[in-house]
Amino acid sequence: MSEYSPDVVRKLEEKANQMRQDIVVMVGAAQSGHPGGSLSAADIVAALYFNVMRYDVKNPKWADRDRFVLSKGHASPVLYAALAEAGFFPRAEIITFRNINSHLQGHPDMKKLAGVEFTTGSLGQGLSGAGGMAIAGKLDKKDYRVFCMIGDGESEEGQIWEAAMSAAHYKLDNLTAITDWNGLQIDGPNAEIMNVNPLPDKWRAFGWNVIEIDGHDFTQILDALSPESRVEGKPTMIIAKTVKGKGVSFMENACDWHGKAPSEEQVKTALAELCA
């Protein structure tokens, strides 16, 4: 495992914490949205946007940029929080989330918001889109990386495994996917609704380079996302064990908070916890 300076880790912790606050504020303001899977993904998305990825806020379509596809599009608040923090749009606008005329659609819309690389919301499609970007990168002999986050429930979609096959077939070592392995989906635990396990074995069997990590440990996250963790000729799958609702005690591991908005009182409690 690599050593990261305490400054690097502290900065990411601060970014992730700010993003978690923004997620709670956004979903609270909209009285609608998906806090659970946004909070579970916050540390990984923070590491991507504030340490790993190469991009230019002033030139969002820069051809050589790294790309991040949030295939589990319902977690749009975590993406919007990162894009606001990175400066793609003013943070003040997060309270327009899900409102009429807002560019912050319920699910990410690449036409409405700069920085969104792929329109998602219908689960199962984003990984294929990321595969297409990785193929284009190879054709153009560019060295950009493509990142894609999928859900564990989303992994029940057949198209995920079609994409698993084609990314391995076309040797897309410029593609790194992350499974937000929080163990929960809408109707209950994955294990009860439709067992997706053993996930690591499945991805290995599909020909991917598989890395298992704690998705809330920045050292492990940074190690897994670093270019050195890749294997030539194989796409990489980081299976990140996470806690749904992470950081807000009453939302943690609670299936109910998948797609429910906190009341004004609950927003206050959540922010107090995050700011403590």
């Binding site: 051809a63 792929f118 294929s128 889109g129 595969g131 297409g132 054709l139 153009d140 994409a163």
Partner: peptide, 11 residues
């Protein structure tokens, strides 16, 4: 969906 991803890159 792969075609869509390629199109975002100018293909």
């Amino acid at each position: 969906s792969n075609a869509a991803g390629m199109a975002t890159c100018g293909k």
